[in-house]
Design a protein around this nucleic acid. Structure first.
Lengths: 235, 235
DNA sequence: GAGCGTATTATGTGCGTACTTATTTTGTCA
DNA sequence: TGACAAAATAAGTACGCACATAATACGCTC
């Protein structure tokens, strides 16, 4: 007797994925209809649908109503990156976390900050500069702007005790986040704060968040020399 | 009369998300059981399940069998990054794409490369250095190692005509990809290739791919000055 | 009250049906 | 031929049921 076990949607996903890996379907090729695959594999269409959705989410295939399913003609490398609260990032590595507020002041947002938020009108903000430490050594230097209209409660937070990073992540959930990764050469101020030499290449993470259309915060995190952002993704 | 319309799982997701946004549930708090939410919203449990899965995928909540659903105690910023084939990336910006092979040679992989693949045994590889151009100007300098056991067909590819990047992405689908983002200071060779000055800060993308446990390729892409990697994510 | 096996519970999955929606194909008429 | 309407199609969604699975809670024994 053959095993009458039911296929899980993961099995189906693997099945389809493998037929792509083996070259049975190449970029641009059309796959059979869900219903036909379901029949062939002897499972429900909804199970195939689940598998297909997942493959579609991971960027391997494209699906269109009536148009059917095809292998992406122009494949992309798709990866998920997680950026934790800095304190946790440090502590999870087994290091001790430290934090120093450098400066906080209310100011109208300059042009560049408004641009990051895709705003055209001026907006009063709180600018916060702070340093995160790992085992007492500089780890991330952050330059943050917080929209006082969207997050007025930040005024009541003692930013010398709790980082804006932490308070915002815990208290200001967002509906949209933009990230920008780049590199910058340390200027005199950065070099001093990060305890490195002028001109050192530093990895920079810029993050901007909104709740619906309302801007929350934008932060430029300048990481210490040697910092790497790592992701691991499996299909 | 009230509208007897059925709720979609997106509606349910929005509903739950908003109750989190409004602070009804904070980090660590437990949400009602799916079945109860379904009853309250007058929809099927499977609809709530779908919504919850999505919120869980986007890192907002955590779900455990029997343990129930709770708002993530330690929220993370989760984002999806897409890295297209370099040629497409350039062409999509409306620029003309160019490509120059610098050097290709078979060699045993050095220690660092083996480490990226998490390999302990030596492996013969093809090392390919190449330059991608945008409107004739240097865009990305890539230093690539390709595992000849996993991808022997690469030997037959004319790498002066087609980039290894393109050939691999089209012909070698993977099951695992690791990414590492960092910054590096241009050394003499990089500066020369990328037509910039010594010491310039450059953004670096390292990508390593496997098919199951077999290593495919690892590439260190050194981007031209000013390069940014951008993502946009909405919940 | 410590240790351990069992019952309980909330999420996870699979199925089949019915219906919806986006898109393409076909068909009709000018 | 070209414009536009109608039919066909394939994915997407909702529901309800049954059962699987993984944690937790409970309760028993010693």
């Amino acid at each position: 007797m053959s095993a009458p076990e039911r296929l899980s949607w993961r099995d189906v996903r693997t099945e389809i994925h493998e037929s792509i890996l083996k070259g049975r379907y190449g970029p641009g090729d059309r796959l059979p209809r869900d219903a036909d695959i379901a029949q062939e594999l002897n499972c429900a269409r909804s199970t195939v649908q689940r598998a297909m959705q997942d493959l579609s989410d991971s960027g391997l295939i494209e699906r269109r109503r009536k148009g059917g399913t095809r292998v992406r003609a122009h494949p992309v490398t798709r990866a998920t990156v997680d950026i934790p609260i800095t304190r946790r990032e440090v502590e999870d590595k087994g290091a001790s976390y430290g934090y120093r507020l450098i400066r906080a002041a209310e100011k109208p947002a300059p042009r560049g900050i408004l641009a990051a938020f895709e705003l055209s009108k001026p907006c009063n903000m709180l600018r916060v500069e702070a340093l995160h430490l790992s085992d007492g050594r500089p780890y991330i230097l952050e330059d943050r702007w917080i929209c006082l209209e969207t997050a007025p409660e930040i005024r009541k937070v003692d930013l010398s005790q709790q980082s804006a990073n932490e308070w915002l992540v815990l208290n200001k959930p967002y509906t949209r986040v933009d990230l920008r990764f780049s590199a910058v050469s340390a200027d005199a101020a950065m070099a001093e704060r990060l305890d490195t030499s002028l001109g050192t290449a530093l990895f920079v993470i810029e993050r901007t968040t909104w709740i619906d259309a309302a801007p929350i915060t934008t932060v430029r995190s300048i990481t210490a020399p040697g910092y790497q952002l790592v992701t691991r993704n499996e299909v």
